[in-house]
C-alpha cells in the first residue's frame, strides 16, 4: 500500500512526541486502543486558566497512519480552546491525511484520544 505524502511526513517527522506530567492538574491524558488490536494512542493536553490548549504531546503504538493521525491531532490541538478542540472530527483527520478506507479507524482512534484527554482534564478540574 502506498502512503500519502502527508502520512509519510508526519510519520518521518512526528510532531510533539513525548509526555506531559500526567499528575498535573492542568494536564489531561487520554489513552485509547488496545495492544492486542495493534493500536494504542496516548494523547495529552495542557490547558491554561482560560481554557486554551497550550501544549499537546503524544505517543502511539500502531501503524504509520495511526502515528500520523496522532501527530496531526497534537498539531491541531495546540492553541485551540477546549470548545473548539471538542469539535474536532475524525473525518477531518482522515481527509487531511488522505487515509484509505482500511485506515479510517486510525483517525477514529485519534478523535477518541482527543475526547478522552479533554474528559480527563474536565474530571480533574471539576468541569
Amino acid at each position: 500500500m502506498a502512503y500519502s505524502d502527508k502520512v509519510m511526513d508526519h510519520f518521518s517527522n512526528p510532531r510533539n512526541v513525548g509526555s506531559l506530567d500526567k499528575n498535573s492538574s492542568n494536564v489531561g491524558t487520554g489513552i485509547v486502543g488496545a495492544p492486542e488490536c495493534g493500536d494504542v494512542m496516548k494523547l495529552q493536553i495542557e490547558v491554561d486558566d482560560d481554557g486554551q490548549i497550550v501544549d499537546a504531546k503524544f505517543k502511539t503504538f500502531g501503524c504509520g497512519s495511526a502515528i500520523a493521525a496522532s501527530s496531526l491531532a497534537t498539531e491541531w490541538l495546540k492553541g485551540k480552546d477546549l470548545d473548539h478542540a471538542t469539535e474536532l472530527k475524525n473525518t477531518e483527520i482522515a481527509s487531511e491525511l488522505s487515509l484509505p478506507p482500511v485506515k479510517i479507524h486510525c483517525s477514529v482512534l485519534a478523535e477518541d484520544a482527543i475526547k478522552a484527554a479533554i474528559q480527563d482534564w474536565k474530571r480533574k478540574n471539576g468541569k
Partner: peptide
C-alpha cells in the same frame, strides 16, 4: 515488543520484509 510491525516496515524503507501485523491485511487480525 512495543513496536507495531507495519510501522516498523515503513521505517525500514530500504528493506523489503513482511509482517504478521493485522495492519498489513484487510482482516485486522494478526
Amino acid at each position: 515488543a512495543y513496536v507495531e510491525g507495519e510501522a516498523l516496515m515503513m521505517k525500514m524503507k530500504d528493506i523489503a520484509v513482511s509482517s504478521g501485523s493485522a495492519c498489513t491485511s484487510a482482516s485486522l487480525e494478526p
